[in-house]
Design a protein around this nucleic acid. Structure first.
Length: 297
DNA sequence: CACTTGACCTGTCCGC
DNA sequence: TGCGGACAGGTCAAGT
């Protein structure tokens, strides 16, 4: 699920919710969800406090005062949901009666719960992941930026380093690729996934199958602005809940109400009124307006 | 190189 | 109602 706006929304939530109480215990039901828990969890997780929550691309980093960090990738269906007081009443409450109507999660833990972190103040952080693709790892904080996949990420699209020059330079590394594939390549630009690739390309009026080298500098300028606008708006709306994304409080995001093409197959294009089409590009379902987004030349 | 396919998993939806 | 297949926000590795 989560692309940059969803992960960032979770980060913002956890940043205010987590720091404070020390970790009391940690449990997990699916070893692949927490590969090195046995080795390190007791000594470097239990008893430590969260000091900060950060994000790089689609990866969340929960820094602990033990000098270790929880590094988390939610992949397709991961959720991180914080429930204050959950440990007091293991059998009821949580998201039971009275929970907001924009909540998507029921009583926790449920059958998708993979990792449970309980804090001394009775709050519980649940890592749920229906498809079991996501993972949590505990690593020394100083090593986190030097992990292979962290080093390879391209620029963060919402930081000052994402200049037009940086964008163009990065794209030349995939000059012969199709633009959609390039946008999904995390080493070119960090954090864009299937939803925001489609939305950005619609906004910039570029057909996803266009070769990067065939896109004019002027059009690439429009694209960079579109990426920034689309991601920023989505963060402002709390991300996209297409299926099961929720924020740190278990609530849905509303960006899908503002999407122009994603998941809108057959509906009229907001610019020209012609029906949105669905094709396959870069191996992914891809939504386009064939009238607005010109065929690759 | 760049693209496709298959893996990793579970769940849902659609057509028959 | 049941069954099979396609498909789903992400990323790897391997094959073409």
């Amino acid at each position: 699920m989560p692309e940059l706006p969803e992960v960032e929304t979770i980060r913002i939530g956890l940043q205010t919710l987590l720091p404070g109480s020390p970790v009391l215990s940690v449990d997990f039901d699916w070893p692949k969800s927490f590969p090195n828990a046995e080795a390190d969890a007791r000594q470097f997780l239990v008893g430590s406090r969260v000091v900060a929550v950060s994000r790089r691309a689609k990866v969340l980093i929960i820094g602990l005062d033990s000098g270790y960090s929880l590094v988390i990738h939610l992949k397709m269906t991961g959720q991180l949901v914080y429930v204050p007081g959950a440990a007091k009443n293991p059998s009821k409450e949580r998201f039971g009666a009275g929970h907001p109507s924009d909540s998507l999660v029921g009583s926790l833990p449920d059958k998708s719960t993979r990792v449970t972190i309980t804090f001394q103040d009775k709050a519980v952080l649940y890592f749920n992941d229906q498809r079991k693709f996501g993972w949590v790892r505990l690593l020394p904080s100083v090593e986190v930026p030097h992990i292979d996949f962290m080093k390879r990420f391209g620029p963060e699209p919402l930081e000052d380093t994402f200049t037009q020059k940086a964008f163009t330079t990065q794209l030349t590394r995939r000059a012969r690729s199709r633009i959609k594939a390039a946008l999904l390549d995390q080493t070119i630009i960090a954090g864009i996934g299937n939803i925001y690739a489609d939305e950005s390309l619609w906004a910039a009026k570029i057909h996803p199958e266009t070769r990067v080298k065939d896109i004019s500098p002027a059009r690439l300028k429009v694209l960079r602005t579109a990426i920034i606008d689309v991601l920023s708006l989505s963060i402002a709306k709390g991300g996209s809940t297409n299926k099961n994304y929720v924020n740190a409080e278990g609530k849905k995001g509303s960006y899908m109400d503002f999407a122009h093409v994603y998941n809108r197959t057959g509906q009229p294009c907001d610019r020209c009124g012609n029906p949105i089409q669905k094709i396959r590009s870069a191996g992914r379902g891809t939504h386009i307006c064939l009238t607005c987004q010109r065929e690759p030349s």
